[in-house]
Computed example of a mutant assay.
Amino acid sequence: MKALVNTPAGLAVHTVADPFPAPDQALIAVRSFSLNRGELDLLAARTEDWRPGQDIAGVMVEPAADGSGPAAGARVVALAEDSGWAELAAVSTARLAELPDSVDVEQAAALPLAGRAALNTLRIGGNLLGKRVLVTGATGGVGQLQVQLAVLAGAEVTAVGRDEAADLLLKRGARSVVPAVTEAEGLFDLITESVGGETLEAAVTRVAPGGTVVVFGASSRRKAAVNLYDFIGHEGARLVSYLSYADPTPVSADLRTLVDLVATGSLQPPVGFQADWNQVHNALEGLRNRTFHGKAVLTIP
């Protein structure tokens, strides 16, 4: 089969051996996959025949030998451990979900990692009905999903994003859009923070007493200076980290939740770039330079 392999010479399509599934793994013919920002760093660091790829969607070729999961021919979305940017992928049935008929594989491929991060960062904030939520980095894949899911949960959402994305974020359900945390009015019960540096420092000044700031990214690459005295006026507020690799929630259940919401029209997958997989370098460059909002989704003919 063909697969994208990262070598010292760069990322390119190579011919590799077909995967050999473990008893609890299904063999999936990948029809679409998406790129995550964290993979930019991994591609720079892992150059010895590394096989990238986690977010995939496609068709079941062989069901798991242990009898778990969907039957052959079912369309599925999956969160692979790695090696997903390929014509075939072996994935545990605990990490996939069958797609409703109305959900395209291209839509589904944008959901796994970003969708789980959005769901579970919001869950840290508890019941959001009637609460005020502030989403930083709202134009990205996770951010767009956080805005929509928080609105669905009954929250009043303020999104932090660039001016040119204001219309998009308002369509996603945000009550208001601001260019910086410092321009958000009032205090918030939950703040999801993915930028770091001065943005995280500002988030502490906007969290309500007893509220929560969930830190799940540091796209600015800058460290924040926060100390005890910053919490005066924000007593009882907490800073909580979210790391996707340590998320204990069942993957398949989260994927089913996400695709069911897409099927009902309640959730719009954040696809900002879509092309054939031979355009992977253009997709990576656009992701690196933030030339589109949301996820890059590539298809395998």
Rank of each mutant, 00 (worst) to 15 (best):
L4D: 02
T7V: 12
A9H: 15
A12Y: 05
H14P: 11
T15I: 02
T15G: 03
A17D: 15
D18N: 14
D18E: 10
D18G: 09
P21C: 08
I28S: 06
S32G: 02
S32P: 03
G38K: 05
L42V: 13
L42R: 07
L42P: 09
L42S: 05
A45N: 08
A45W: 13
R46A: 11
R46L: 12
E48H: 12
G53E: 02
P70A: 14
A71N: 06
A74H: 08
R75W: 15
V76W: 01
V77M: 11
A78S: 06
A80T: 00
D82Y: 09
S83H: 10
G84M: 11
V91T: 04
S92F: 03
L96K: 05
D104K: 09
V105W: 08
A109F: 03
A109T: 06
L111P: 07
L111W: 03
A114W: 08
G115D: 02
A118E: 00
T121Y: 03
R123G: 10
G125E: 07
G125S: 12
L128Q: 09
L128G: 14
L128Y: 10
L129M: 08
R132G: 07
G140Y: 07
V142P: 05
L145T: 04
V147C: 04
L149E: 04
L152T: 04
T158W: 14
A159L: 09
V160Q: 10
D163W: 13
A165S: 15
D167K: 08
D167F: 01
L170R: 06
R175W: 13
R175T: 15
P179A: 08
V181E: 07
A184M: 03
L187A: 13
F188T: 05
T192Y: 11
E193A: 14
G196P: 00
G196A: 08
G196S: 07
T199F: 07
E201C: 04
E201A: 15
R206C: 14
A208S: 13
T212A: 13
V214E: 05
F216Q: 01
A218H: 12
S219L: 07
R222D: 11
R222H: 15
A224P: 06
V226E: 12
V226K: 06
D230T: 15
I232Y: 11
A237C: 12
Y242V: 03
Y242S: 03
D247L: 02
D247Y: 04
P248G: 10
P248I: 09
A253V: 12
A253R: 15
R256G: 14
T257R: 12
D260V: 05
V262D: 13
A263S: 13
T264G: 08
D276T: 07
A283P: 07
A283D: 03
L287Y: 05
R290Q: 05
K295P: 01
A296F: 04
A296Q: 03
T299A: 01
I300G: 05
P301C: 01
